[in-house]
């Protein structure tokens, strides 16, 4: 299938009550099969941007289009959009009262009305792929952070989203667990999953991204191929940002 434009925003702006212009006229687009990594200093609006795309936040101005159709700010119908746009959070947010398997099959059964048998089969296959088959009857509290996050990814994947939003999904993990999660994401990228990824793992960003977006103070300051961005950042702000990064990396 030809790649085509799947999601775009035009002049997307957003303020919070006590925080003006968190997003300030963002123009963005992503093709099917593309992986866009968003980097930027803490508080620059990365999470807010993803949350707007998934209708977890209302926007103040601009347009978001999914599959060429404008997403209207009608929150009664938000569930129809979110069914197509998957999201994984930094804090995993598995449902603590349900087993791993029940976490995964809940939405496909209740939201998509798929047959329990089929969904379970798919869930088991996906769990096996991320190396968690033997944890399918465990409760989230019995899993490590890395395991939880892999389950959260599977839970989003089983909905067959058209696009997946990952918001700093390794930021809460111990270093030794970061790899096991990022490997799953790299694999997804290889298989052609469309993704917008917010991360502070620069090595991973370089490896996974088709395109890097540098966000600062609610604006897209720079947009480039990963090699270009990391090697020859154009803007002063991006240079500064990448420098602090080297510094932090050395510190640790």
């Amino acid at each position: 299938m030809e790649n085509h434009l799947i999601l775009e925003t035009q002049e997307l702006s957003k303020s919070y009550e006590n925080q003006k212009n968190v997003l300030n006229g963002i123009n963005f687009s992503i093709q099917t099969g593309e992986v866009v990594v968003i980097v930027g200093p803490s508080g620059c609006g990365k999470s807010t941007f993803l949350r707007c795309l998934n209708m977890l936040e209302p926007i103040d101005a601009g347009v978001i289009r999914l599959d060429g159709k404008e997403i209207h700010q009608d929150f009664k119908k938000a569930h129809l959009i979110r069914e197509k746009v998957g999201m994984v959070f930094q804090s995993y947010e598995l449902f603590p009262h349900r087993t791993v398997l029940d976490n995964i099959i809940l939405a496909p059964i209740k939201v998509q009305k798929r047959k329990k048998e089929d969904v379970t089969k798919e869930a088991v296959a996906l769990l096996t792929r991320v190396g968690l088959f033997e944890k399918k009857s465990a409760y989230p509290r019995q899993l490590s952070g890395g395991q939880k996050q892999r389950v959260a990814i599977v839970r989003a994947l089983i909905m067959h989203p058209e696009i997946l939003l990952l918001d700093e999904i390794t930021a809460a993990l111990d270093p030794e667990m970061v790899r096991e999660v990022l490997q799953v994401v790299l694999q997804l990228a290889k298989e052609g999953m469309t993704m917008i990824i917010v991360t502070h793992e620069m090595g991973f960003a370089k490896a996974v991204a088709d395109r890097v977006l540098f966000l600062d103070q609610g604006q897209v300051v720079e947009e480039a191929a990963p090699f270009e961005f990391f090697t020859y950042p154009k803007s002063e702000r991006a240079k500064q940002f990448l420098n602090t990064f080297h510094y932090e990396a050395i510190e640790i």
């Binding site: 977890l56 569930h79 129809l80 998957g86 959070f89 449902f95 009262h97 939405a107 209740k110 998509q112």
Partner: peptide, 28 residues
Amino acid sequence: KIQTESAFSLGMKKSQVIRYIILPQAFT
């Protein structure tokens, strides 16, 4: 809030989030 948002982001409606996510946890 973010726990319910993770349920919303799976396409659940408010009634489903209340029934399957919030109430079982609240009850416990």
